[in-house]
Amino acid sequence: MKPLTIIHLSDTHLCPEGQLLHGSIDSWQHTRQVLRASEHFSPDAIVVTGDIADRGAPIHPMAAAMFNDIQEEFGCPVITIPGNHDPAGSVGPEFNTQRLSIGPYQANTVHEVLGLRIIGLDSGGFQLAQGELDQAQLSWLQSLLAVPAPLGSLLLLHHPPVEATSKVRAGRGLKDPMALAAITAGTDVRAILCGHYHQAATSQLINIPVLMAPAVSYNMNPFAPHEILAESGPGFAVLQLGNDAVNWFAASSDQRTTKPQDAAQRTSVEGHLAAN
């Protein structure tokens, strides 16, 4: 069976019309560039792991319309969860229009993609750096995972259930990650996809891969953690899932200005090295 391809976007930080993020970044243009670049990989699904808006900007209806247009054009679901810049309830019924069901909150969703179950979890935390899954969400997740899916499950979270690699972002992940680990241990969860840290990174929650996409809007300089790498280009990640393998690599839409195939091969090697 051909591996499934999941395009992972995060932290678009979309601003009100006519405004630039941090005075210089056109986050709408970045998002459109990444969506166009993702078409190169013929995705089976596109997932967006939160911070759709910047600082609660009222852009969610426009963002939903954009994602729904892409969903129709590409013929694959666009699956979205909120982040700490998205007000409670802002990822409502106009998002995730191909969901099979919802959980305790509107942004808790279940999708099925060719046998792969994708579960969206709302870690909330609007205007807070740290996120949390409450007992209702954990119980809902536990009931879902009691029955395995044919190709296993992916979890989507904004706040990573692992510590940041940068000291300046320490303490900004998911509160009490071991509560999540207790539920996912021994289940069919193949990976947890997150954002929030504005850097591509991999880790593990016990024995489950945690894959953190680079941000679409901007990424942080690991050598100078307070500096924004606006010039790094809009980032995203590509996840390829086979029956027995999980391959992940980070990419930038700017790479399409050179040779797309060469860029894909180069980032695939980099992603393999990072994951090991």
Rank of each mutant, 00 (worst) to 15 (best):
Q127Y: 12
Q106S: 14
P148Q: 13
L239Y: 05
G103K: 11
G271F: 05
T97Y: 09
A182M: 15
R36W: 03
M66T: 08
T257A: 13
S27M: 06
L145P: 08
H85C: 11
I228T: 15
Q142H: 14
P3G: 10
A224H: 13
Q135H: 13
G124Q: 01
G89M: 13
A65T: 08
H30C: 09
V238F: 02
A201E: 11
A274E: 15
E73C: 06
G124W: 05
P82L: 10
D69N: 12
H22R: 15
A170H: 14
L145H: 12
K167A: 13
L205F: 06
Y105M: 11
G233M: 02
L205V: 11
D176W: 07
Q255M: 06
A63H: 00
C76V: 06
L155V: 04
T258R: 13
S143Y: 09
Q137C: 03
F249H: 09
H226A: 14
P93A: 12
L211G: 03
L239I: 15
N247A: 13
I183K: 12
V162T: 09
D262H: 10
S10F: 07
V110Q: 10
A230M: 12
I59E: 00
G23T: 12
T80P: 07
M66F: 08
G115E: 11
G131C: 04
P104S: 14
D26P: 06
R32L: 12
E73Q: 14
A164M: 05
P160S: 10
D188K: 08
H8G: 01
N96S: 05
E132Q: 09
S24D: 09
G92V: 06
H226C: 09
V189C: 07
H40Q: 06
I70V: 15
A264W: 04
D11W: 05
V216M: 01
S252M: 02
T5C: 06
Q204S: 09
S153K: 09
K167T: 15
S38T: 07
A107L: 03
L155T: 04
G56I: 00
L154N: 01
E39F: 07
H111E: 11
N207Y: 08
L100H: 08
